[in-house]
């Protein structure tokens, strides 16, 4: 079966990511991340991206590559700052060159799920009594105090998976699944970087984690180190 989803290179797969786009990044703390796609994006010198990611610390060189290239103007994350002095995100935030929005991770994942699932927003009992409920609509639902959390949609999602078949069905390896499978459905265009591309039928339909309907483009992972 012919596939128009398979791209020749990471660069080709990210060629139309435009200035000011919202980009959802898979991976946790820089591991299991779409390094080839992010490198290709950093090389393109786009500006004003909003990046949504799990965290930027623990040596999250993936996001730092984009930040260092001056591509990012806003980060939405549960843990945007690295700890200690000299953290690039910290410095840029202090100088006013980078906007930061901190969102609890379960809420962030659910907001992206809402976007991908056509839900207009959810009432969650999360963060009540903390700084994460301030300024939000608070309502008692079924006797439980809840905050309203709107959907969070991306223009693009860049994710990493282990295998794709040519119709875009994906499987992951271990903890790779966590954030990659959570962000993939929430973007208009989802781009998967994979280690292996196989034929339809090579992935057991019972084991598909991300059905191909959510995946628009596939690029092979590069083994080259990032940076």
């Amino acid at each position: 079966m012919a596939s128009s989803k398979l791209y020749d290179s990471a660069a080709a797969a990210v060629a139309d990511i435009h200035d000011s786009a919202t980009v959802l990044l898979g991976g946790v703390s820089g591991t299991n991340a779409p390094t080839a796609l992010v490198s290709a994006l950093a090389d393109r010198q786009v500006r004003g991206l909003t990046c949504v990611c799990d965290s930027t610390y623990y040596g999250a060189e993936v996001l730092h590559r984009l930040v260092a290239a001056g591509c990012v103007s806003r980060i939405i994350s549960p843990a945007p700052f690295g700890s200690g002095q000299g953290d690039m995100v910290h410095e840029l935030w202090r100088s006013g060159d980078l906007a930061i929005e901190v969102v609890p991770w379960g809420t962030l994942a659910e907001r992206m799920r809402s976007a991908g699932a056509g839900i207009g927003g959810v009432f969650l009992p999360v963060g009540i009594g903390t700084r994460f409920a301030e300024g939000k609509e608070i309502r008692e639902v079924n006797g439980v105090e809840c905050v309203f959390e709107p959907p969070l949609r991306g223009d693009f999602a860049l994710i990493r998976a282990n295998r794709a078949d040519s119709v875009g069905n994906l499987v992951y390896e271990g903890a790779q699944r966590g954030w990659n499978s959570a962000v993939v459905s929430a973007a208009r265009i989802a781009i998967a970087e994979v280690d292996h591309v196989v034929e339809p039928g090579d992935i057991d339909p019972e084991q598909v984690i991300t059905p191909g309907i959510f995946v628009n483009r596939i690029a092979r992972a590069s083994s080259a180190p990032i940076g």
Binding site: V28, G106, E110, R113, G178, W179, A182, I209
Partner: peptide, 15 residues
């Protein structure tokens, strides 16, 4: 990050 003992899980499912 997305594990439940030995099972890999989606981050939204973890939340």
């Amino acid at each position: 990050g997305g594990t439940l003992s030995d099972l890999p899980i989606n981050a939204a499912d973890a939340g």
